[in-house]
Computed example of a mutant assay.
Amino acid sequence: MPAVAASLFLAACGAEAISSAPSPEAAEQALACEAAPSKPPVSNGLPDVSLPCLGDGPDIRLADLRGPLVVNVWAQWCGPCREEAPYLAELQRKAGGKVKLLGIDYADPRSELAVQFAREHGLAYPHLVDAEKAVQQPLKVGGPPLTAFVDEDGKVVYVHRGVLKSQQELDQLVQDKLGVTL
């Protein structure tokens, strides 16, 4: 049952694809977060920190999350983040619930621009705010973008530092690191 609840946390927050021009209501719903059931932290898992939701919803404790999950650390001021955003939007569209996505808006002083960034790029999945760089040390974030791959047990099985260069690269990482074929 906990795995189902964790799936619902992310799946319910953006299961619908959003077109390039979503309605404001659809975009706000897509950025919404739902609490995940509390779980013990996992060795080599996501850090035991809670971050506020960029959209509507409660703070989310990263250590509660299980995969298959792709966590993308980004910022609206980050040029490479803009380059890879279409690949993440396409992954969400193609994944059909087989892989969950979570964004972390990192060290971003302008949350209103972060919301606009997510909407403009069709990133219709939950996003959290890390204004204080709480994930910097545990995930060894030198700067965005950074993409972490989390397995069904909650372990971070791979961290890609820097920009994702193509849809093929991202899809291959999901297959190789999470065992999910799209």
Rank of each mutant, 00 (worst) to 15 (best):
A3E: 15
A6H: 06
A6Q: 08
A6I: 09
S7E: 14
L8I: 09
L8N: 10
F9K: 11
L10Y: 13
A11L: 13
G14L: 05
G14F: 01
G14H: 03
A17V: 10
S19W: 06
S20G: 13
A26P: 07
E28K: 10
E28W: 04
E28T: 12
Q29R: 14
Q29D: 10
A30T: 03
L31R: 08
A35Q: 08
A36E: 01
A36I: 03
S38K: 12
P40R: 10
V42F: 01
S43W: 03
N44H: 14
L51C: 03
L51P: 01
P52E: 07
P52N: 06
C53Q: 10
R61A: 07
L62G: 04
L62T: 02
L65Q: 03
L65D: 03
G67R: 00
G67T: 00
P68N: 06
P68H: 08
V71Q: 02
W74A: 07
A75G: 15
R82T: 12
E83F: 12
E84Q: 15
Y87V: 09
A89K: 08
A89P: 11
E90M: 12
L91E: 08
L91V: 09
Q92A: 14
Q92C: 13
K94T: 15
K94S: 15
G96S: 04
V99C: 08
L101S: 06
L102C: 08
L102I: 10
I104C: 08
Y106M: 08
Y106F: 14
D108P: 00
S111K: 11
L113K: 14
A114I: 02
V115N: 03
Q116N: 12
Q116I: 02
A118R: 06
R119E: 11
H121A: 06
L123C: 08
A124P: 07
A124S: 13
A124M: 07
A124E: 03
Y125V: 02
L128G: 00
V129L: 15
E132N: 14
Q136N: 13
G142T: 11
P144L: 02
P144V: 00
L146F: 03
T147K: 04
F149T: 05
V150G: 05
V150W: 01
G154N: 02
K155G: 02
Y158K: 10
H160A: 11
L164K: 04
S166T: 10
Q167K: 08
Q167T: 06
Q168D: 14
E169F: 06
E169A: 09
Q172H: 12
Q172R: 15
Q172I: 11
L173V: 08
Q175R: 13
G179W: 12
T181M: 11
L182A: 15
